[in-house]
Every structure is written in structure tokens, then in C-alpha cells.
Nucleic acid binder design. Structure first.
Lengths: 117, 117
DNA sequence: CATAGTGTACTATCTACATAGTACACAGAT
DNA sequence: ATCTGTGTACTATGTAGATAGTACACTATG
């Protein structure tokens, strides 16, 4: 994985895992890699990996069974809620930024339509 | 000014100043506050303020006359270019994020239309 | 020439982030 | 009971960002 130096790595890994969960690349109830394995996969420190799981657990997206591992929540509502929050967050950020740049919503929509992909 | 703890303060001040320049709240050729005054206005350290100006100068948005102060560039092309880059950046970020969330461009446009403001 | 305002260059300190390494506690399997 | 895999806790180190304080050099003005 390629990291953006402007934002803490642990936040970037959290986002990556949330997207895996939202897009069901990792399914509800499924076991996540151990913190040590996660550290290897993402080339981060085991401490940072542990921090990632603690934060995901705090947000209710995952839960931990000591000695067993960390698992994705079985509560699909939590996962949907997480997706909603992320969508809302990036929409609000976008609107705020274009507003500051003096770009109207209509112009922004045109810009989006004009993108090839 | 209110700062986001997730991003370095000096980057946030740089963005704020760029928006002032783009929106002509500070005009082309105009003198910017001294680094010491900027530090007071934004409640940051004089060193951080100096760093802000060094970065803006590196990007060609401002220039410095030693002993005189820092001024907005007279090159309107540079300012327009800066605005274009910021617009492009936030559009690309937005599209990337909604794509990762499994939201299509059409859905995103609907979301934007449905915002009140 | 003296002064005030300015950019610039240091050193020092503090915090958050990230890494490195070690140790311990719990759960399941053999 | 032992072993393995797991989460958890701790100390130590390095770096970047931010702050604090000081000092110096340049420019315009009086």
C-alpha cells in the first residue's frame, strides 16, 4: 500500500480496512488478520496495527475476542452507518472546498460530468 | 481560525491564504502581513508563519523582498493556475473517494443536488 | 547615522506519530 | 500440561510539527 505523508498511517490503514468491510471484501463476522499479520501486510509496526484495531473496535465496526483475534461486527446496521458517514463526510468536504473556490454546485456537477472515467 | 488536528497547521494556513488570494480578498501585488503579524492573526508561532511564506514563495504565489515584506505575485496566470490546481485536486479526491465507496458519478450528482445549501 | 519594521537563522523544548523490541495474559488444540 | 496464536502492555528511540526565545541582516525613513 502507498501512503500519503500528509496523514497519519494508522488513519490511512483504518480507512482501507473500512472500505474492505463496506465493499464486503471482508464479510460481516469474518476474522481479520492478527495484528502481527496486519503489520506485515501493510508494512507497518505491530503497535500501529494494534492501534488500528483498537480504533475500529471503538467505532463499533469490529470487536475483539482476547486470544482469538479481531472480527468484523455482525451488525450490518453498523456497517451501513459507517458507509453513510464516510459518504456524508466526503460530500461535505467537497462542497465546502468548491464553495471556498467560488465554484457553484451546478458548475461542480458539470465538472463531474466532464470527467472521462 | 479553527484548525483541524488531523492536518499540519502550516498547511491549513497556506490554504487559507491561497483562498484569500484566489478570491481577491488580498489582491495581486498587495503586501501580506509581516510574518510576526501573521503569527498574531492566526495565533501561530512566528516560525510557523515564516514557513508558510517560504512555501507560498516556493509555489510562486508570493515573492519576498528582504526587509520589505512578502507580496502577492503580480502574475495573474499564477493565481489562476493555483485556483485550477486546487479545484482539480478536490474534484479528483472526491471522485476517488466516492468510487471507493461504490457510489457512481450519477448518484454523486444526485447527492449534490439534494443538498439544501 | 539611528531607528523601526522586516525576513532569516539559530537553539531548545514539547507532543504526536511511528518504529523496535520485549514481555505477559488469554484461548484453543494437541 | 504444553504449545501456538492471539491481544495487550510497556520502555526506548527517531522524526516531524509546533512552540518559545534570541539574534542578526537588510530596507526604508527620518
Amino acid at each position: 500500500m502507498q501512503y500519503d505523508s500528509k496523514t497519519p498511517i494508522y488513519l490511512q490503514v483504518i480507512t482501507a480496512l473500512k472500505l474492505d468491510i463496506i465493499n464486503e471484501r471482508i464479510k460481516s463476522g469474518e476474522k481479520l488478520p492478527s495484528s502481527r499479520d496486519l503489520a506485515v501486510q501493510y508494512t507497518i509496526n505491530p503497535n500501529t496495527a494494534a492501534r488500528v484495531y483498537q480504533e475500529l473496535e471503538r467505532e463499533g465496526v469490529c470487536y475483539t475476542k482476547r486470544g482469538m483475534g479481531t472480527f468484523v461486527t455482525e451488525d450490518m446496521g453498523k456497517i451501513k452507518q459507517c458507509r453513510q458517514e464516510m459518504a456524508k463526510g466526503c460530500l461535505e468536504d467537497f462542497l465546502k472546498q468548491i464553495n471556498e473556490l467560488g465554484i457553484t454546485k451546478e458548475e461542480a456537477i458539470e465538472m463531474i460530468k466532464n470527467t472521462t472515467k
